[in-house]
């Protein structure tokens, strides 16, 4: 499959880019690394009239720390993140997650912004136009039926990006610029939990993600990302769990965050599992109990190749592993 024709606009600044997006009135998209977008275009999931590139806006490629926060430009590649000393030192789980995305051949093209904006995925949707023509158009593709649930007007496609769970765990916010100006939004609120339009931008806000802002974690912060997949490269997460623990005296859990990707239409926070951990000493029994709870907090759908039951079982196993890692109980 070749790409269809489109116009290509290299924005010199963000205002230009926003104006251009507006001009095309919905039929225009940002291209960052393009690693995800190009496949989607080849599959005719989108047929934009124009792509806007942000390559010529150097400010989007910075990684810096200022006033107790770390700022990462949306156009930083995953490789930039892997190679950043600042990230390695202050946000080790982010480095870990970046390292596990896709394959080495994609990581120097793929950007963190693109990863955050990644659409949800589904085995009935991420297919060529020929493939999809065998069935009625599904809801996400503009039809009215969902092949997973057989219900109308619903989409349960799976959110599968690796970076967002870690970012949310670190309490990140994203800066968006659009026709109505700029805003800073907690990343968690950027996601809609709507399989069809999973984030603010995909709902058609006409915005651009410019920057990620992460409060510099305290020295008591322990964080990790555990990705479970069927093949250890060239594979999206079947399930990915970011864990952040604020530990007092190395063991006492003052605060915790557990964010899961691959288990719903948005990154999911395991709230009850977190409750279980708070104000407790982190030890094997507690970890097992929290893992059990987390497994029941997710409701995976058959939009991927494994059964929901399997995913739930794995959620417990992976979370236990992540907690042990973050708690320093395991390597």
């Amino acid at each position: 499959m070749r790409l269809l024709e489109f116009d290509y606009f290299e924005a010199e600044n963000l205002e230009d880019a926003v104006a251009h997006l507006k001009k095309y009135n919905g039929s225009c998209q940002i291209i960052a690394g393009g690693t995800d977008l190009l496949t989607a275009l080849k599959q005719r999931l989108y047929t934009p009239a124009c792509l806007v590139s942000l390559d010529n806006i150097p400010s989007l490629k910075n990684i810096k720390e200022e006033n107790g926060a770390i700022f990462i430009g949306a156009m930083c590649t995953l490789e930039d993140i892997i190679n950043s000393e600042l990230v390695a030192k202050k946000l080790p789980a982010l480095k870990q997650a970046a390292w596990e995305v896709g394959s080495p051949l994609l990581r120097s093209l793929a950007t963190i912004g693109g990863n955050i904006c990644l659409n949800t995925r589904c085995r009935f949707y991420n297919q060529s136009s020929f493939w999809r023509s065998s069935r009625e158009k599904c809801f996400k593709a503009g039809g009215s039926i969902c092949h997973v649930t057989n219900k109308q007007e619903s989409c349960v496609a799976t959110f599968s990006a690796d970076m967002p769970p870690v970012l949310i765990a670190y309490g990140a916010s994203v800066r968006l610029i659009g026709p109505k100006g700029t805003r800073l939004l907690p990343l968690r609120q950027f996601y809609t939990d709507n399989g069809r339009f999973p984030n603010e931008i995909l709902t058609g806000s006409g915005e651009i993600l410019t920057e990620i802002e992460i409060p510099t974690p305290s020295s008591q912060t322990n964080s990790t990302y555990c990705k479970f997949r069927l093949r250890n490269s060239i594979d999206f997460p079947l399930l990915g769990i970011a864990v952040l623990l604020i530990l007092d005296k190395g063991k006492f859990c003052k605060d915790a965050r557990i964010i899961i990707t691959g288990a719903g239409s948005a990154p999911i926070e395991a709230v009850e599992a977190r409750e279980k951990l708070l104000q407790q000493e982190l030890e094997p029994q507690l970890i097992d109990a929290a893992a059990q709870i987390a497994a029941s907090e997710i409701h995976p759908m058959r939009s991927s190749f494994v059964s929901p039951r399997y995913k739930r079982e794995i959620a417990g196993v992976v979370l236990a592993e992540a907690l042990e890692k973050a708690g320093g109980i395991r390597e």
Partner: peptide
């Protein structure tokens, strides 16, 4: 219908 007509979803062995 063949659900995994790609190397991404047809998981043949890789170096690892």
């Amino acid at each position: 219908q063949l659900f995994n007509p790609s190397f991404l979803s047809y998981r043949l062995p890789i170096s690892l």
